[in-house]
Design a protein around this nucleic acid. Sequence first.
DNA 1: TGGCTTTATCGAAACGTTTCATAGGTTAAC
DNA 2: GTTAACCTATGAAACGTTTCGATAAAGCCA
Lengths: 341, 341
Amino acid sequence: MKRFDKASVTIKDVAKRAGVAHSTVSLVMNDREHVSPKLRERILKISNEMGYMPNMVARSLISKRSSTVGVVFPENPHFFTITYFLMMIEGIQNACKKYDRALMFFSLDQTKGESYYQISRKWLIDVMVIMNVDYTRDISKDIEDLRKNGIAFSIVTKYVGKEKVNAVCVDNFEGVRLALEYLAERGHKRVGYISGHPNSSDGPERLQAFKALSKKMGFDQDRDLIVQGDFTFESGEREAPKLLGLKKRPTAIFAASDYMAIGAMRAMKAQGISIPKDIALIGFDNTLEAAYVEPALTTIRQPLQEMGEKAVDLAVRSMNDENFEPQLAVLKPELIIRQSC
Amino acid sequence: MKRFDKASVTIKDVAKRAGVAHSTVSLVMNDREHVSPKLRERILKISNEMGYMPNMVARSLISKRSSTVGVVFPENPHFFTITYFLMMIEGIQNACKKYDRALMFFSLDQTKGESYYQISRKWLIDVMVIMNVDYTRDISKDIEDLRKNGIAFSIVTKYVGKEKVNAVCVDNFEGVRLALEYLAERGHKRVGYISGHPNSSDGPERLQAFKALSKKMGFDQDRDLIVQGDFTFESGEREAPKLLGLKKRPTAIFAASDYMAIGAMRAMKAQGISIPKDIALIGFDNTLEAAYVEPALTTIRQPLQEMGEKAVDLAVRSMNDENFEPQLAVLKPELIIRQSC
DNA sequence: TGGCTTTATCGAAACGTTTCATAGGTTAAC
DNA sequence: GTTAACCTATGAAACGTTTCGATAAAGCCA
């Protein structure tokens, strides 16, 4: 087993060369007061000459804070190719740069009984972003553990439990409103809806918004205009035919996620139905793929990058400030008009 | 500033409860010999009861190895939404699981003069994967630093310098062969080529393969059948019209990346050219988007996941075994037939 | 100049591990 | 019954930092 043999230059080396105590060098490195400007400058110069770099691991150990952002995601072999998450990760990475923190990823292996808190302890993660995709699992216990132990974290998306925690989500009501108003403008009054995962926070919220708004706007209210998906491509492909097969076919379909919309698109193509001529299609999310499909998908943009960034912002703030009240950041969606309506 | 106040259970706590020296507990935790089975069992039981988790940071500090895989990528605000990299990251993540290592990401800010070696020192990264996308930068010095200091690393993709290092790439010659033979089968003899970035390793390799094979296979050899892209969507959209505008238009276009192929597709659509009726199109990579465009893109698959995984494998092996000879792993490409030819 | 306050620097302790030389105990060999 | 060999368990040292109380020096005021 290889080892680093040639020790790199440590704070003590710098101190020795400068003829001071290494604690003094530490003060300089951390920009703390109580060091005379003259000495500070000299130490800085020497440390640069020697190419000193603080050892983050030692720093973490003593300070019990790791200068990282830990992103915890559920066990899923394809997590990194689900563009929905990636766009959030892009925002998280940007925030990491902003706060000069490194980015760590942990897949949560529930089978091993690992908890968020354990991960935080094991790696001294002090800022954690929880990607809560496994809607079927109750994480209230884990949340409680984190909170109790003063570990700063945020959840994406909205946490449905009762504790008040940092969380980031999109304004689903507004998103649905944008979509339905756009459809109404274009003359649609009979809109089929493919709902999202019932155990998520977004799924039911969007569904509820759809029900309320479509009623208010005078759309057809048949019970069978609503089918149940789970956000995935497959569920869209599976459920869309139920809408297409209705005696009185809807003139537009609104899917609660782009993946489902694209699945629906596949199903429609298979039946030779032309979009948007025969039927209009609108999605939700604005994931990467939406721009690539043909016709390009009109959709409601979730500001995923901003959500990722905000999640880190909130967690960092609650780490820095004892009194920071955990909050839910609700970001504004946006209508992206392409060719599918 | 918040701190973890309630200390979590340490190895000493376990030792005290078990009435043994904490070094003994350490032996047990690391599955080392020289502990009687009876005692080992007792300690294991107690440690479980107490919920002991080793502190990875302390472990890193003393052992100078961090139990992580550090992925270093060049400064690029959209890195995490470039699916090409993501698919590799997926493989890297799988390997991390296999080796029970956490995954860390570092964007290399060259403007700050950071080097790979410095990152490795700063965070005690002992297994590093270098995503060498910035083709314009000479990294031979960094490579040398890593090697000299015994830090295990791999590069994706192929490293073009003279030192022998762990690297992972696709068999470009074979990939080009697959594409050209497929085109030949379908009767094409006049193929336009959009080349990749000239400072990469893949760009020139594929170009050379194209030149050699298209000659050998009796394709038209006009100089202007080859245009220069840089792997990006934009370059494909920019360069394709040059091929389309030729007096004698090619019957097929081969782009050295899917992004360029999709860019070319956009350009063709803009001109009302139908794919594959008017002209065939084939890409390279099989990134996520290839399956979503219309018509779905026929392409040469790079086994990106496998490449990511292999990169970690190589690095881990060279870490574990002093005598492991750095090697270049050349993975096999695969023809993915869709609708664009 | 003496005493008091402030500031600059120092030294030691701590963080939670691993490692390594060594002590004590048991067994084996003669 | 003595010595050697082995095995188990121990205690101290080390990793590279930060922190904090102590000390020394300097500044201030009377």
